[in-house]
Amino acid sequence: MNQRPAIDLADLPTFGHGPRSPTWWGTLGFMALEGMGFALAAGAYLYLATLWPNWRLSAPAPNHWPGTIVTLLLVVSLVPNHMLNRYAKQCAMGPVRIGMVVMSLLGLAPLIVRWFEFPALNIYWDTNAYGSMIWVLLGLHTTHLITDVGDTIVLTVLMFTRHGYSGRRFGDVGDNVFYWDFVVLTWIPIYLLIYWVPRLG
């Protein structure tokens, strides 16, 4: 059909940070659906916990220390994570590279402690449903931890190549920061569910 020029967009920028960019919204979408997965798994745990009066089903209490150390590491990592976000917004290559290396290390550290967290649960997944559920919760979070750390490392390498000098890459760094917040945030309720909720009753 016939057309008439109405507006000219030649001066629009070619990238944007945060909610301006579609990738941010995509990340949010995946957080929503993964968050739903966490919520349902937690719901299933609570459902079983309220169903059986002697929850923990006479299993020994877990040793909370590895989990607590993971929690501390994750919470501390939020500080450099948000500094990194600021540098990404300024498109400052030097600090962003340092920040990405720091965040890769701060991703690996809880992963190493996590290795000791599974035995500290003091029960196996096939002992009873309580054991199954805490392994499932911990496993679900560990999957997220591993994929995000992998993603962070690849992006770190990318920032040291010539492909790093682009607005899009700095946007990717921003989205990576955003997703790490999600990984930290989802851990808190799971930590409470595994280590502290059973002690209440």
Partner: peptide, 20 residues
């Protein structure tokens, strides 16, 4: 998981629940 690695999430005999 119940079928493959022996978890008991849906197994009422071991503290799980089928209605879940």
């Amino acid at each position: 998981l119940d079928r493959l690695v022996g978890t008991h999430i849906f197994n009422p005999a071991e503290g799980g629940d089928a209605l879940l």
